[in-house]
C-alpha cells in the first residue's frame, strides 16, 4: 500500500491589516482558512468555501476577492485587509456604521463580506446606477434577505462620496 505523504508545510509571510505575520502551513491552505484557523482572524466567514456566497470577501491591494478561492501562498507581498482592519480603533469605518444605522444585516454572518464588498466597490468607483449597484453586490448572498437595506448603505455611501480604503 502506498503510504500517503506527510502534508508538507511551507513558511509564509503575509501582510494583514498593516501587520506582517508569519505562518507555517500546508501549501493548499486557502487564504480563508489561514485567516480563520491559523491566525484567529475569524471576522472573515466561511459560507460555502466555493466562491458562491461572498461571506469570505477580503480586500487585497484594495480589491475585493473571495479568500476561499486563493491560496495563502499566492497572497504574499500584498496588502490584505480584513473586516478587523477597517475600523480605526474605536471609530467604525463609515460603511460599518451605515450597516448598523440601516439595519443592513440580521444574523450578521454575511456582514463582514458585504462590508468588504461595499468598500471594494467604493474603491472601484463603480456602481453608479441602482441596477449596477445591485449587480455588482450580487456576489454576496445574504440569506436573511437584508438586500434592500444593504442597498441603502451603498447608495448613501456613493452619494456621500465615502472613501473605501485609503491604501490601495
Amino acid at each position: 500500500m502506498e503510504v500517503p505523504k506527510h502534508p508538507e508545510t511551507i513558511p509564509l509571510e503575509l501582510n494583514i491589516n498593516g501587520e506582517t505575520v508569519e505562518l507555517d502551513i500546508s501549501a493548499w491552505t486557502t487564504l480563508l482558512d489561514a485567516l480563520r484557523e491559523h491566525l484567529q482572524l475569524t471576522g472573515t466567514k466561511k459560507g460555502c468555501d466555493h466562491g458562491q456566497c461572498g461571506a469570505c470577501t477580503v480586500l487585497v491591494n484594495g480589491k475585493h476577492i473571495n479568500s476561499c478561492f486563493t491560496l495563502a501562498a499566492m497572497q504574499t507581498n500584498k496588502e490584505i485587509t480584513t473586516i478587523e482592519g477597517l475600523a480605526n480603533g474605536e471609530n467604525l469605518h463609515p460603511v460599518q456604521d451605515a450597516f448598523i444605522e440601516h439595519d443592513a444585516f440580521q444574523c450578521g454572518y454575511c456582514t463582514p463580506g458585504q462590508i468588504c464588498a461595499t468598500v471594494g466597490l467604493l474603491n472601484m468607483k463603480k456602481g453608479n446606477t441602482p441596477e449596477e449597484i445591485r449587480d455588482l453586490m450580487s456576489g454576496n448572498i445574504c440569506r436573511c434577505g437584508a438586500y434592500a437595506n444593504i442597498y441603502k448603505v451603498v447608495e448613501e455611501m456613493k452619494e456621500k462620496g465615502t472613501e473605501g480604503t485609503t491604501s490601495i
Binding site: 475569524t42 472573515t44 466561511k46 448598523i100 456582514t111
Partner: peptide, 21 residues
C-alpha cells in the same frame, strides 16, 4: 433602535460557533 449587537457584527467580533477554539 439600532441593534445592540451591531458593533460586534460589523467589526467581525461576534463569535459564531466554528470560531470557538
Amino acid at each position: 433602535t439600532r441593534r445592540v449587537d451591531g458593533i460586534k457584527k460589523v467589526t467581525g467580533q461576534a463569535p459564531y460557533i466554528a470560531e470557538f477554539n
